[in-house]
Design a protein around this nucleic acid. Sequence first.
DNA 1: GCAAATTAATGATTTATTCAAG
DNA 2: CTTGAATAAATCATTAATTTGC
Lengths: 194, 194
Amino acid sequence: MTGHTRWSPTPEQLMILQEMYRKGLTNPNAAQLQRVTDHLSFLGKIETKNVFYWFQNHKAREKKKLKKKLLMQMNQQQQMCMNNDLDCSLACSRSPALHNLPLFTSSTRLMEEVEDASTRLMNSLWNMNPPIPTKCDMETCMMRAQDPHFILLMDIVPTPTSLPCISSNTPLKTLELFPVTASSSLKDLARKIS
Amino acid sequence: MTGHTRWSPTPEQLMILQEMYRKGLTNPNAAQLQRVTDHLSFLGKIETKNVFYWFQNHKAREKKKLKKKLLMQMNQQQQMCMNNDLDCSLACSRSPALHNLPLFTSSTRLMEEVEDASTRLMNSLWNMNPPIPTKCDMETCMMRAQDPHFILLMDIVPTPTSLPCISSNTPLKTLELFPVTASSSLKDLARKIS
DNA sequence: GCAAATTAATGATTTATTCAAG
DNA sequence: CTTGAATAAATCATTAATTTGC
């Protein structure tokens, strides 16, 4: 195949082809190919098969590009989601109103004792000192299951007794079940013990 | 560190820890760690630091697992999307009602001639024979931009003159701009020419 | 079956990042 | 802007699980 030189569109031809494609001509039939070829032949040497192959290739490559682009978008989105929201997906509320919600019913288990033990421990922790600093009334909330956790979004209305936790103009917020501030340094504790 | 043997939770301890975590205890403070340790010490040798590390690791690894899971889901979804719908995203309608929609206005370009040339060619193609077999009236439609293409969903009401293209109980459908069936085989054409 | 060899899980440590107080 | 506490991420190291050849 050394004697041959393959077709290469002139800039004008290329632009028109691209424009046609962008306008929706992604799969021209024989008659259309012929017609396009006729028109483009005024701008340079061209054959029907060139046009045919161009559309074939262009479609495939646009598809590939779009695919790649969406992949990147999705990965990015996903990263953001992961980095910012994952902890929220674990968060839940200490409010008594939630104690009996499905959020706290465990999946069926063989060992009821484990269930009981952890529940008792959990309840004892709820009653521990120091008291958890955030205390809010809940009005509306949405719960979304995200196996194996739940995301709980709720409308928070700070009560008079509540500490300055969240400004009231951010209505939808996720509460945390357990205190954010430890009474003593965990690192120190861990070090002292080890 | 050869003399040491690292802590390994008994099955009961592990179950309770997991249960606590599932109930929302993902970041215990010092007092909580101590309390949990005290309780679990009845089930086997355990130190506060073990509990501390367990929660740290478990949280991190659950996060990682969830991340991976979501990633896979997204990739799957994406694959499906790509394989089934990509061609649809390129589809648009040949109906005269759409000729002046933004769908067919090209982006701003330096060379107006190209725009004109491709538009003229496009228009000539629209008027070509054989006539495009699908012919429907449109009532309602939605257009969604998906750079660099558009997805057009529309309510199709077959007219008396229309060929049997789409059953009327599938109201929302994507139309294709150009005929799906070529008047002669493209493959044959390409072969004949080459 | 079982014991060495390989792989996967996971406890423990270190390093980096975030965030609030001064 | 710096510092320190807290947390998250990355890494190391050992144990548990499994594979493999006999």
